[in-house]
Simulated assay, not measured.
Amino acid sequence: MKVMVMVKASPSSEAGKMPSEELLTAMGKFNEELVGAGIMESGDGLKPSSQGVRVRFSGNKRVVTTGPFTETNELIAGYWIWNVNSLEEAIEWVKKCPNPMEEDSDIEIRTFYTMEDFAEIDPDGKEAAHEDAMRHTIAMRKAKVNNYLFFSGRCEEAMNFYQQHLGARINFMLRFNESPDPVPEGMLQAGFENKIMHADFTLGDANIYASDGCDDATSFSGFSLSLTLQTAEDAHKAFNALAEGGKVNMPLAKTFWSPLYGQLVDKFGIAWMIMLPGEDAPQ
């Protein structure tokens, strides 16, 4: 069951008075408990209504009114979104909450509608399917995409190389023989027990995952990493370092979209595009 837990406004919250350090700490600990229990989805405090607006609907008319609003006991100063097993569970959690105001205050719990509540007016499930599609679209737009590179046994060497020449930062590295779970028998090529099972490193503003894979047969095709630098000197240094032991497909040169652009494949088989930003340069 999803519920919204609303902290009602009070004279002090509407006056914009900030919570004491003691209350801030206590609320922080309460939020930690909610997160630890796995029920908290989100939660925020709201600024006073003096910094808000209302839009009144009357037929086709829309009337905008700026705050403050006088009905303090009807206003909201903050909220949480919780996923609980029952309304009773939500009530027990609210009882544990520190008083969020310096004066007497109220916290209101309201349950969310679900599409099952609209079954009678949506008998064919068309609107439910539409809602589900929109939720999936929102979830996918919030998803994080990372490049995952497989180095056929040269992962550690490659990350150290990129660290030295491109300023990469190695964040994490786990070898197959360090795995908490045993690697299935026959999964690894002989001699790969000490190779990198999973690692991640940061290059520029991108976080990249990496692995040796399970054997030395992996090859890259139809894939490039694009690296945009700010000066010609830096572009040449990066290009020359990556070209050592690799293959230059297009030397650094001026193009219609970039003052300096080139393509190469480094000695680990990774394809790169090195460029300076231009008005129409790919970002």
Rank of each mutant, 00 (worst) to 15 (best):
V5H: 00
S13H: 00
K17C: 15
E22D: 02
K29R: 09
G38A: 11
M40H: 15
D44Q: 01
G45F: 06
L46G: 08
G52M: 09
V55A: 10
V55Q: 10
N60E: 09
T66E: 06
G67H: 14
F69P: 00
E74I: 12
W80Q: 04
W82R: 04
E92Y: 10
W93D: 03
E103Y: 15
R110V: 10
D117C: 06
D117H: 08
F118G: 11
E127D: 11
E127I: 02
D132H: 14
A139G: 10
M140N: 10
R141Y: 06
A143H: 11
V145I: 08
N146P: 01
N146K: 03
N147R: 15
L149A: 00
S152D: 14
Q164I: 14
L166H: 04
G167R: 03
G167I: 05
A168P: 00
R169Q: 14
N171A: 13
F172I: 02
L174D: 08
R175H: 11
E178I: 07
E178V: 13
E185W: 09
I196Y: 00
M197N: 12
H198K: 03
A199E: 00
T202H: 12
L203N: 10
D205V: 09
Y209C: 04
D215V: 04
A217L: 09
G222C: 06
S226A: 11
L227N: 13
H236C: 12
A238Y: 05
A238E: 03
A238Q: 03
E244P: 00
G245K: 09
N249I: 12
K254W: 06
G262M: 01
L264N: 05
F268I: 03
I270P: 01
A271R: 07
W272E: 00
G278C: 10
E279K: 15
P282D: 12
